[in-house]
Design a protein around this nucleic acid. Structure first.
Ligand code: FES
Ligand code: FES
Lengths: 159, 159
DNA sequence: GCAAAACATTATTTTTTTGTCAAGATTGGT
DNA sequence: ACCAATCTTGACAAAAAAATAATGTTTTGC
């Protein structure tokens, strides 16, 4: 269970744009330099995000990228879904094994785990907006702990 | 954010062993056939799980694999951690980009998200044991929804 | 003791993911 | 009109992950 490079860098690029003042924009070389990735790579990421409608772009001199929506209205689960090539949902069909579908079709004890995990992650991500990621690390961390705090309570009860 | 093939299949193999009666065991070909993967692949997975101490094995004719601990004492977060090559924790050092470490070292808004997500997943997994996965799909699903239910409550409050 | 059945371990191949390159298209300034 | 800065897009190459193959070791049963 890990976050893919595309998910992470795509999100990072969006955060860079979220840091801008209204009216400002960033070019590909600027984004690439600020995140320490190549311009070509940033280009592909931004192309994805543009296609998905998260950013707008202007061509030509003085062009660049800027957020299409206010950062406070962009939830992280939407972003991740786009960057992850939508392979998350339909798990049982795209089975890597020899068989076409999962051998446990009909009554499967694994499916709830896979699906449930994705739901938990999605739910956590849906509670975070881009705007919440522009602050200092400690403020972001504190925000995140509100979500995790609920879990700790549950765990404490269980023991 | 997705579960890797190794995580999924390793977990599946363990569930197969958890289904056994005490004293029984499964051979590699049996495990492979039940999960629809190749014998060689199952062999590698079981080797990992054996090395990590989750299963014991006996060689020779009438050999096979069986759980080293009761299924009710094996938590999923331990299993996943072993199958995922421990790359989960130290994220900021193993940065794929051009730089040695994350460009935001010192004050990073992304780090809490990465770390926090892993903690949330780990926490959820730590609440599930192998024994809970041997039932019918609906029973496993119901168990999982107890965990997710907490999230729903939180979400409802937020709105 | 020998052969068959089974696990153990390392190496190789295949597939998927990630990152790069290059040619094209659009805009703004001069 | 021209040029330079910029995004766009598809093809390509490198890296990582996954799966397979190959070889070796141990045990059982005869
Ligand atoms: S039926 Fe899809 S994971 Fe089992
Ligand atoms: S410092 Fe590690 S993700 Fe930013």
């Amino acid at each position: 269970m890990k976050i893919s490079a595309q998910e992470e860098y795509g999100l990072r690029c969006l955060v860079q744009l979220a840091n801008l003042q209204p009216g400002e924009s960033l070019t590909l070389p600027q984004i690439a330099e600020r995140e320490g990735i190549s311009t070509a790579n940033a280009g592909k990421l931004m192309w994805l995000l543009n296609k998905a409608g998260f950013v707008h772009s202007t061509r030509g001199t003085k062009g660049g990228y800027f957020l299409a929506r206010p950062a406070s209205e962009v939830r992280l689960n939407e972003v991740i879904k786009v960057l992850d090539q939508d392979v998350l949902n339909k798990h049982c069909e795209s089975y890597t094994g020899v068989l076409d579908s999962c051998v446990h079709n009909g009554d499967c004890g694994i499916r709830p785990v896979i699906v449930g995990l994705h739901e938990i992650v999605e739910n956590a991500l849906s509670q975070i907006t881009l705007a919440q990621l522009v602050g200092t690390e400690s403020s972001v961390d504190a925000m995140f702990h509100q979500i995790k705090g609920i879990h700790r309570t549950l765990e404490a009860q269980r023991i």
